[in-house]
Simulated assay, not measured.
Amino acid sequence: MRTALSAAVVVCAVTVVLPGAASAAPTAATGPVADSGAGVERISVAADGAQADDNSAGASITPNGRRIVYSSSAKNLTSDAPTAGDKVYLRDQRTSQTTRLGYLAPVQPPVISGDGEYVAYPHQWMNNVRIGHYQVSTGRSASGNCALFTCNQPSLSADGQSAAHASLSYRQQTYGQRVQVEDWDTNTTETVAAFDHTDPSRPSISGDARYLAYQDGKAKDVFVRDRTGGTTSGPIEGPSKEAAIVQLSENGSKVVYLSGPDTYVHDVSSGAAQLVPDVRGVAIDPTGRYLLYAPHDANGPSLTLRDLRTGTDETVANQPASAGIDAVSADGRDVVFQSAADDIVPGDTNAKSDIFVRRFY
């Protein structure tokens, strides 16, 4: 698919109502966590500081670094933790409190809105997959508009009002996959793109919900939709004419994608791409300045944070470790990651995968 895609708007009801243009310039985070200095901390712990008794994974962090959401099969993280199965937990770094969100097991890592107020994650429901939405301050929950579809790959706007996802009809597979955006304020669902296949589209929405980046997984193309301007740009691709999306920065200025063995950071405004050779991009910070990547060289650090403006690198983890999207807070201050290594922090004896946060200043 090498031509611009048109948008079709479909009005649909959703189960509950939950609560301008993006700039290419970096944005500052508000209300950061109190400065506790540089270092690394394990955050998948119980209220009394005890280490988790089972594996934790799939962490995402808010731009201000205060809230971290992840999944875990541990049974001792909260007083109401279930006795079996993965559940989603939210860690508040300011209060050092951990809260369980929902009873259903996630089938993909949870995501959190930029303001830390909403969390979403796909879960199995009967014969399909739905996306559960949770409001942190009230504990309210709802499922998105996926009654006739299986929905996954969620991405939330900064205020949690807009949620992008991929959907697929489980009754008529010939429908193929759709890239959609739900708006809980207007009770509408916008179909941004439709494909005749089931390859992943990995939608990634900007903080103000104006821009949506996604891929045609079959054609190996990446596109960016300006929902305000009503235009779609792309395909965005590397020299190999193939691309796989990693993430759109929260301010909508940069799109990270993979092409061949390299990573590219595409500037949405200018159309120029910055090459980061021989690495696998993992995430980008909300301002579009800091790239988290995994070097292909197995002899080096497993995760590295690059300042794209200065070209300087900071080691996130020397031990075997991994991370997902939304793993970097604004201005590269904090990075969340998972690792089963037992020498990242003292007293790690549980022989399980834990969630850590690396603070650089």
Rank of each mutant, 00 (worst) to 15 (best):
T228M: 13
T15R: 14
F356E: 01
R178P: 14
P320H: 11
F223E: 04
Y170S: 12
D334T: 12
C151E: 02
L303S: 07
F356W: 05
G332D: 02
R309K: 15
C151G: 07
A21V: 10
V136L: 05
G144S: 13
V256M: 01
A38Q: 03
I236N: 01
F360S: 04
R67G: 03
G288F: 03
S240T: 13
P109R: 15
S240Q: 14
K352A: 04
L303H: 06
G116I: 06
T287C: 10
R42A: 11
T15H: 13
Q135C: 02
D92Y: 04
Y170H: 13
G260Y: 08
F356G: 04
G39D: 00
A193K: 08
F337V: 02
D92K: 02
W125E: 08
F149N: 08
S233Q: 11
L292S: 00
N64L: 05
A59L: 06
D53L: 14
Y103N: 15
Q338G: 08
R358C: 00
V136Y: 10
V224I: 12
V17N: 12
V45W: 03
T263F: 03
V10H: 09
G20V: 10
R91V: 00
G332Q: 03
L168S: 12
D183A: 15
A84Y: 12
D159A: 09
S23V: 11
L77C: 10
V10C: 05
T287M: 07
V107E: 09
R2K: 13
Y70V: 07
S73K: 15
Y361L: 14
R100A: 02
P346N: 10
Q173D: 10
A25Y: 05
R280G: 05
A294N: 01
V357A: 01
T62E: 01
L258A: 11
R202M: 04
T310E: 10
V11P: 07
E250C: 06
R130S: 13
R178H: 15
S60N: 04
Q97A: 15
P154T: 07
A13Y: 12
V316R: 02
V10P: 04
F337M: 00
V345D: 14
H197L: 12
G37Q: 06
Q135L: 04
C151A: 14
D348I: 08
S259N: 03
A209S: 15
V279N: 05
A142M: 14
G252K: 05
T312M: 09
L305M: 03
P295Q: 05
L77T: 09
I68A: 06
S270R: 00
I43F: 03
D307H: 12
A7N: 10
D262F: 05
N145C: 15
P154E: 08
G207R: 01
V111L: 02
G176L: 06
S44F: 08
I325N: 03
T27S: 09
P200A: 06
G324N: 08
A105Y: 00
A294P: 02
